[in-house]
């Protein structure tokens, strides 16, 4: 399996604003990292770098996402290769924590603590000079000030999740790792968490989150790292990844004022591999060359005096890119 890689910086979706990191380089770097448990290879020779902004970590169940996150956080040593956080190895290096926060998937919290106690404890464990102020700031960031004096046992899933994010953010880390942060959240909480991740990416934090809900990943970030069976299958902006899959025709659905005449005109072009006419109206066009087809179509339609009312790429979504990667 080859890895589709988009050079860093071409993503374009994130504004590389004032980074807290010394130098503008990436804070998180994996070099040829392999992890095996006994005979099971969980992660196989992964090399990746993460820049500032939000990145989605995708892969089927059991692909090795959690193992990667745990190695970055220094919970696990790599069996081979290097995991570097701001240039320092993550394993056996407690200092990494001064610049890194992680929200793990297991949502175990002490139900008898209030949200405030929980975040404050995290601030004290980091030996912050002013733990109260830090805890307050983190709780404000996740918008949980009002219920912070209630016991966490009475919280809903979404509220617990936000408090856990606050605890991970209390020392203002430059790197934030989240394992399935949307699990169990309702629509409003999901929107809120998405905004939170967005905001953290915009101020130059390096945020990596794993998720199965591809529509949401698409809304938060175009930049993804896809792991399939322990290997890095693709990395970069998913739209650019799609362009690199040149062997797959690009499928578009088109609705116009005269579908048949448009089909005839398009069929003559080398960039078009095939056209289906939908009896209910509309065309499905398979284009072998994305760049040529998308430039030609407006001109052809204008020349034929056909009005194009709808042009929608059918397999450009993260969902289809992902299924191509996993299925390949």
């Amino acid at each position: 399996m080859s890895t589709l890689t988009v050079p860093a910086g071409s993503a374009g979706s994130q504004a590389p604003s004032a980074s807290r990191a010394p130098g503008t380089g990436s804070l998180v770097e994996l070099r040829g990292v392999t992890k095996w448990y006994g005979n099971v290879v969980a992660v196989n020779d992964i090399t990746m770098t993460l820049g500032p902004g939000v990145t989605g970590l995708l892969g089927p169940n059991g692909a090795g996402k959690t193992t990667v996150l745990h190695m970055m956080a220094g919970f696990l040593p790599p069996s081979r290769g290097e995991v570097l956080i701001a240039g320092e190895p993550a394993w056996c290096n407690p200092f990494v924590y001064s610049g890194l926060g992680i929200v793990v998937e297991r949502e175990a919290v002490h139900g008898f603590l209030t949200g405030w106690d929980f975040v404050l404890a995290s601030a004290k464990l980091h030996r912050l000079p002013n733990p109260e102020a830090a805890a307050r700031r983190a709780i404000e960031l996740v918008d949980m000030v009002e219920p912070m004096n209630r016991r966490m046992g009475t919280y809903s899933k979404g509220m617990r999740q936000r408090m856990r994010v606050a605890a991970a953010l209390v020392h203002d880390p430059a790197v934030l790792l989240l394992d399935e942060p949307f699990n169990g959240m309702d629509p409003r909480q999901r929107l809120h968490m998405m905004e939170l991740l967005h905001a953290m990416g915009d101020v130059g934090r390096t945020v990596l989150f794993s998720s199965h809900i591809l529509e949401e990943v698409e809304q938060i970030s175009g930049t993804v790292q896809v792991i399939v069976a322990g290997r890095l299958a693709a990395s970069g902006d998913y739209r650019t990844i799609r362009r690199l899959m040149t062997h797959r025709p690009h499928v578009f659905t088109i609705r116009s004022s005269d579908d048949r005449r448009l089909a005839v005109a398009l069929m003559g072009r080398a960039s078009v591999a095939g056209i289906d006419i939908d009896p209910k109206g509309g065309l499905t066009v398979r284009a072998s060359d994305y760049g040529t087809f998308t430039r030609e179509l407006p001109k052809i339609a204008l020349a034929e005096q056909i009005r194009v009312q709808r042009l929608v790429p059918a397999d450009e979504s993260l969902e289809s890119v992902f299924s191509y990667l996993v299925g390949a």
Binding site: G291, T294, R295, P298, K299, L302, R307, L311, E316
Partner: peptide, 20 residues
């Protein structure tokens, strides 16, 4: 629709999608 299509064609840009 025509104005948009015309503008895209004149500028020679790749049209990715157009929809309501």
């Amino acid at each position: 629709y025509d104005q948009i299509l015309g503008a895209v064609a004149e500028l020679d840009l790749p049209l990715h999608s157009l929809d309501q």
